[in-house]
Design a protein around this nucleic acid. Structure first.
Lengths: 367, 367
DNA sequence: CTGAAAGCGCTTACAG
DNA sequence: CTGAAAGCGCTTACAG
């Protein structure tokens, strides 16, 4: 029936226009346009457009007929044409500086989870936040591609100047960070401070009293939060973390090695070390091996991230699981929800909680 | 002077049209259009378009004047508008199945190296080649976004059905693989076979006679090439690799552990193991540690990839360096060169050569 | 609830 | 060497 209706509908356009069949125009087959749908269904392009954009102002019967035809012809509106008319593209930019490969990839997977079937695509944009003009680079990227939104990953997410530039541009964005740096509607927060405390409490409960901390760079907010939470957690349990028990690393393997070597020379030697990411924890493993210390017999090691590395180390690393893919999913969902401003006051920021995963690198201290 | 020329040029459009100043229209500032350039420079849009597209058919003086104004106003043509007219977008798709995170990220960096300032952007598209309809998913992606080109990473690059679909669509693509699966103009090849042989020759030269091989899955062409090259290399040096000395792994850490455990139970015990990627080599480390074998004292281990893992293992891993970023760069350059067909016969495929990096996990066998 | 006209910022034939 | 007209596939006011 629906087929007959379609066939019976007379094409209102003059016979000279568009006389050729629908399919196979330019990009392989399936190049149906909004005009084809309008003509074959006997309505105006505007009405089809209303259906595409989910307007309520369409007669249900008309809408159904149009939708049926769109499905039948496997029609999807051209994002470039829509973008030109809407004055923005259907692209989401992912901007990042230099996290680990695993972090980047998991984030991409998470974002793409949320973007699936949305008509939006993910465009990646690494940058170097140490360059003076890196914000300009991002501005050009956003402007030129008329991005619909951008997702900011630490450390660039922590740059206030970048956020302000994006606000000036009037483009949507969301920042991923461990503290509330912005409106709740623009934040996905990870409770790094709480996770740091959790590590402290776990170590105290095992009986450790002499512990060391290897932080990330001070310019990373996550590093401050993880380390600060750890320090606070210890303090709450009556353990003071002296300055000599803290080594500022660089989130790299090598800095983990150096940090462990520095900390393990102290007297009394720490019985446990918390490294603020897994890569540095792997460095601690190496230093311990060199110094003839066994893990966890002589030394308990805790990491942060729960990267694949954590389960590949020997012994498997006790660490904080950071749900990166979930974070990416949340960030992308946030950016796609139109009604962010509908509840400007009551909106709570989206938060994601890392949690401790106990494996084999931790146990009570000897004696 | 050029400024005076510009100011003196009378706007040919009627005064009612476009009376407002140029800047700050929709997307922040800088929303200059081709019409602005044409009007202010006193030529038609078509001529400006010619300059944009590098046509020779423009008077040098005119071209210079236009270029100067474009620079002055910081004008870049809108990729969406160009895309709509050109019937393709300025997006390059990166399609991959499930390589390691490091591989994906390095590939992205390489591709972006080549795309910088080209006006093209990178859209990422992971997929699951085990799903029956995964090719349809890619087709929809390519058609809907009207991709300019797509870059195929192993293992999807090895799927002939996918390549044929892309050909039917008429979209440019390049395949990254270890053998010539396609026209030279569509290939970036890595000499995995040769690298496998290099490992064999190196081990023989050290004096190893009893060696084990842990391959990747048979469905990966790289696995066949690496393993095959290794076998051939040994054979050329008079060493036969028996079937029992070969374990088919899955390119995963766990399969490396399992493979090493199987191989190291044999008599005589192999004095060296070649794992076809670093992750499996890390698994070999774990198995060796469990069995109380020291590396390289009791066992030489060689990996493949030269991922960050290789230098983070203890002892640092001797491995084959695969220049992934360079591969990405080459693939993107290939896709951007317009004149691929100019020399259809004489074209040699782009090839990239992996090479051995000797670290501390290899030495001559005992006695 | 529906449509005709104009426009988004570019390019492609077609003329000259 | 240069330009006027029409078009790419959509949407936004504006009318009804």
């Amino acid at each position: 029936m629906s087929r007959r209706t379609r066939m019976a509908t007379i094409d209102p356009t003059p016979p000279d226009a568009r006389a050729e069949p629908i399919a196979a125009r330019s990009f392989g087959s399936g190049a149906t346009t909004i005009s084809d749908i309008a003509r074959l269904t006997g309505v105006s392009k505007k009405t089809v457009s209303r259906v595409i954009n989910g307007s309520e102002l369409v007669h249900p019967e008309t809408r159904d007929k149009i939708k049926a035809l769109m499905t039948e012809l496997n029609y999807t509106p051209d994002p470039q044409a829509r973008g030109l008319a809407f004055r923005h593209s259907f692209l989401i930019g992912l901007v990042f500086d230099n996290p680990t490969a695993q972090y980047i990839v998991n984030m991409q997977y998470g974002v793409l989870d949320a973007l699936r079937d949305s008509g939006f695509e993910l465009v990646v944009h690494p940058c170097d936040s140490k360059r003076a003009d890196y914000i300009d680079g991002i501005r050009h990227f956003v402007q030129r591609q008329k991005l619909y939104a951008v997702i900011l990953i630490p450390r660039v997410s922590e740059d206030q100047a970048l956020a302000e530039m994006l606000q000036d541009l009037g483009v949507r964005y969301v920042r991923i960070a461990s503290v509330a740096l912005d409106d709740a509607s623009r934040m996905v927060m990870t409770h790094d401070r709480r996770a740091g405390s959790e590590v402290a409490e776990y170590l105290e409960s095992l009986g450790h009293r002499y512990v060391g901390l290897i932080t990330g760079p001070k310019r990373y907010r996550s590093s401050i939060e993880r380390g600060g939470g750890f320090r606070d957690g210890l303090a709450r349990r009556g353990i003071a973390l002296t300055d000599e028990a803290v080594y500022e690393g660089g989130y790299t393997f090598e800095s983990g090695v150096a940090g462990a070597e520095a900390l393990l020379r102290r007297e009394p030697r720490p019985t446990a070390i918390f490294a603020c990411n897994d890569e540095m924890a792997a460095g601690v493993y190496k230093a311990a091996q060199r110094m003839g210390l066994s893990i966890p017999g002589d030394l308990t090691v805790i990491g942060y991230d729960d990267s694949p590395l954590a389960s590949q180390l020997w012994p498997p690393l006790t660490t904080i699981h950071l749900p990166v893919r979930e974070i990416g999913r949340q960030a992308a969902s946030l950016v796609l929800t139109k009604d962010r401003q509908s509840n400007p006051e009551g909106n709570a920021a989206i938060t994601v909680s890392p949690h401790l995963v106990i494996r084999d690198s931790s146990q009570p201290p000897r004696e």
